[in-house]
């Protein structure tokens, strides 16, 4: 079974993101970029499935600018066998990403598409569900456990009240949550090896997908800042302030 893993290049999760003064977006110039953390978890899970013998090939895919190649090399250093870069001028919306992925799924015929649950830049949490809808395939979102059982896959999902388990007929779409696994660091020899693994580049236009955005960004603003608080010396003083000043208890 082949596994397709879409990986997105995003601003590193440790960076304190700044809104541009003109309100057109956030500052990206000179900012550290990394693989979306949920996608690292997805790659790791795919590699573990391959190590267990449940998968035979892992194909990493990124949709975006040329530099997304770096993200794909990282995925290959972690264990993906080859990679596909779908070149676009900027990262498209989930609807367009899902349509591009549908075209690749039709070409590659993977048994599982394993995505991150959410890209930490747009925080959409939508692409996996949308791809599953477009392909009319079952979905196991927010996965904290994935077990292949013959022609189906059992997925444990993190939901609001606890955990839910579903069984999906393959082929299926899965999105990775934080507790699915702890991704490995790529070793130096594997980083070197990844440089020689195949990376194919496709122009988005060649897939015949309309990537025009449906959402126009009117403006991007800083959230309102909280006003500075005070330090208190003791629990008794805290309780007094919560009662008489803040009036919340």
């Amino acid at each position: 079974m082949k596994i397709l893993v879409p990986v997105k290049r995003v601003i590193d999760y440790n960076v304190k993101v700044r809104v541009k003064a003109d309100g057109s977006g956030v500052e990206t110039a000179g900012v550290k970029m990394s693989m979306n953390p949920f996608d690292e978890i997805a790659v790791e899970e795919a590699v573990r499935l391959k190590e267990k013998g449940a998968a035979t090939e892992i194909v990493a895919v990124s949709i975006g600018v040329q530099q997304a190649q770096d993200t794909l090399r990282t995925a290959m250093a972690m264990g993906a066998d080859r990679a596909i870069l779908v070149l676009t001028e900027e990262s498209p919306e989930p609807l367009a990403v899902a349509k591009i992925l549908r075209a690749l799924v039709e070409r590659e015929q993977p048994g599982i598409v394993l995505l991150g649950k959410q890209a930490i830049d747009d925080d959409m949490n939508a692409t996996g569900q949308m791809l599953a809808g477009l392909l009319d395939r079952p979905q196991g979102t927010f996965a904290s456990k994935v077990e292949i059982e013959g022609e189906s896959v059992r997925v444990t999902r993190e939901i609001d009240g606890g955990l839910e388990t579903v069984s999906l007929q393959l082929p299926a779409i899965i999105t990775a949550d934080l507790r699915l696994n702890e991704p490995r660091y790529a070793s130096l020899p594997n980083i070197m090896k990844a440089r020689k693994k195949p990376l194919e580049t496709i122009a988005a236009g060649d897939l015949g997908v309309d990537v025009a955005p449906r959402l126009t960004v009117v403006k991007v603003a800083e959230p309102p800042a909280r006003k500075a608080g005070v330090m208190v010396g003791s629990a008794a003083e805290l309780v007094e302030k919560l009662r008489s000043e803040a009036k919340v208890i």
Partner: peptide
């Protein structure tokens, strides 16, 4: 924007050829 809403609405949106607006 609960686990249920986030699981279901994007799928419906894709079937309607709509870009969902989460959160």
């Amino acid at each position: 924007a609960t686990a249920t809403g986030k699981n279901i609405l994007p799928r419906a949106a894709a079937l309607l050829d709509v870009q969902p607006i989460p959160d």
